[in-house]
């Protein structure tokens, strides 16, 4: 993907005509992406500016074509067929530049690329469900943020949201005890 984008960028800046054409394409896409109401409102407020841009967009492709004819045929003296060949060669060059990279097989131990399509789908789905769910945090306990303690054999820290937050499991479940040492509660073994 990165190589393709870089190649496309390199091709675009290789010729001012391409760069201008690309800028116009982006401009048109941006314009078309605006809601119709907003476009009408802009056009009503700035009719001349929009008119000039529209004129440029309409004329530039023809101007570029005309410039090529002047450069290669009228000035360079090449027959039209050579000019067409040149355009075809440039088109081939573009096709070559945009050709997708050969995809390497995944290394042993890692998932194959085919699974990654499912991956993208799952991510989008999970995020969508999460957005719909809008899950809240647990209710605050009203503790003082930064306070720490051992409570029911569990190290806890009071969060900025004033919730007693477990800093670990209940220590007895792992054959340890909750001990506060130098102000830090933790599950420790062999200490009283």
């Amino acid at each position: 993907m990165k190589t393709m984008m870089l190649n496309l960028w390199a091709w675009l800046i290789s010729d001012p005509a391409y760069a201008i054409a690309a800028a116009l394409v982006v401009l048109v896409m941006f314009w078309k992406a605006l809601p119709a109401k907003l476009r009408v409102s802009i056009e009503t407020r700035f009719p001349r500016a929009v008119g000039i841009v529209r004129t440029i967009v309409a004329l530039v492709p023809d101007l570029i074509g005309a410039a090529r004819v002047v450069r290669y045929q009228a000035v360079g003296g090449q027959p039209r067929v050579v000019v067409s060949d040149r355009a075809a060669a440039e088109s081939d060059k573009l096709r070559e530049l945009l050709k997708p990279e050969e995809s390497k097989p995944s290394e042993p131990g890692f998932v194959e690329r085919g699974v990654l399509a499912v991956f993208a789908g799952v991510c989008v789905l999970a995020l969508g469900v999460a957005l719909l769910a809008g899950c809240p945090m647990p209710a605050p306990d009203g503790c003082s943020p930064g306070a720490r303690r051992c409570h029911e054999d569990t190290p806890q820290v009071c969060s900025p949201g004033q919730r007693w937050t477990p800093a670990d499991v209940t220590c007895s479940t792992v054959n340890a005890s909750c001990i506060v040492r130098e102000g830090v509660p933790a599950c420790l073994r062999g200490e009283q």
Partner: peptide
């Protein structure tokens, strides 16, 4: 935490995990 593993208000998994992780700095 797995159920019953600790004492205190714990955070849920699944979509709640994704939501809380992205939206709540405390979570």
């Amino acid at each position: 935490y797995a159920k019953g593993q600790t004492v205190g208000a714990t955070l849920n998994g699944g979509a709640a995990f994704a939501w809380l992780y992205l939206v709540e700095p405390e979570a």
